[in-house]
């Protein structure tokens, strides 16, 4: 990403794989408590962080994600 574009308010696109039982529940809890965070994260619910195949991470980068978060 060129510096000029960054200056225009470029924001990264982040894909988050969240475990249904903990990280996804945590994200729900953040909502219940109205904690605010930037809207450029897209959460994909998985039944366990162990379900995240490295292939999924690579695919996200391949499709243009700037960051991938695996939380569980």
């Amino acid at each position: 990403m060129p510096v000029a574009a960054e200056a225009k308010g470029w924001e990264p696109k982040i894909v988050a794989f969240c475990c249904h039982w903990c990280a996804y529940a945590g994200a729900d809890l953040a909502g219940l408590n109205r904690l605010q965070y930037p809207a450029n994260v897209r959460v994909i619910r998985v039944p366990c962080s162990g379900r995240v195949n490295p292939q999924f991470v690579l695919r996200a980068f391949q499709r243009g994600a700037d960051g991938v978060l695996v939380a569980g």
């Binding site: 729900d28 930037p38 809207a39």
Partner: peptide
């Protein structure tokens, strides 16, 4: 999940929240 993980956490960014909601529905 456009409430706990969208509307409630992006209350001040209506456009961003709407874009995110569209993406979540697409997924």
């Amino acid at each position: 999940n456009i409430r706990e993980q969208c509307a409630w956490v992006h209350a001040k960014d209506k456009e961003g929240a709407t874009r995110k909601a569209v993406d979540l529905v697409r997924a």
